[in-house]
Amino acid sequence: MLKDKVILKIRDIRKIYHTKEKEILAVDNFSFDLKQGEFVAIVGPSGCGKSTILSILCGLEDASSGTINKVDNLKFGYMLQSDNLFEWRTIYKNCILGLEIQNLKDKEHIKYVNSLIKTYGLLEFKDAYPSNLSGGMRQRVSLIRTLATKPDVLLLDEPFSALDQETRLAVSDDVYRIIKKENKSAIMVTHDIGEAVSMADRVIVLSDRPSEVKNIYEIKIKNRKNPIENRKTKEFSDYYDLIWKDIGYHV
């Protein structure tokens, strides 16, 4: 597929949650385009509506108004904010859940899953149950489960939040590599500005609820490499400061 081809066009999304007590305007006037092979990060204060946006994109929630145009047969892979591992399934069985549902349990996919399990250091725990895993390991299983079906667009909701700093850097490097190698696209929600700047081609900064796009930063790093290397560049710290000031939230 072509690079720079727009695969997802989002216009004026608005989402109102209705409960008996009140209505909550979670997202207002949210627009942006996603190109083939692009990595977009979304940052914004807690509760501003980031997860809501991903759910709408994935088709799990209907927007109250606005339009989403996407190219045909675009397959999403949604890594939810909570790992939602099935306690009664082994790690391996959890990893292939999506394959089972989409009838993709063929040799090629199974092999891919096995290689991911190995890469993410879970080989030893393949036949263990989720209750025996640490939070970070669980998150890696959830990531493998999402990658297994080989989606075109990855929707990642704070995918590395439970990982320690070291693993976090390594895993984000890996995910970045997979996405770039296979020319996939990704939209990643994160609270970590450094992560956003080092991984993404664009960073969308959202305002407080209802979330509107406050600013979009094109991340232009000369000699762009993998996230870990990117962190060492001068541009990285410039963007970091810029976005930090922009968000103005204190975490």
Binding site: S55, L60, L80, N84, L97, I101, Q102
Partner: peptide
């Protein structure tokens, strides 16, 4: 929600 995201 997770299963629905796989179009179950």
């Amino acid at each position: 929600k997770l299963l629905e995201s796989f179009r179950a």
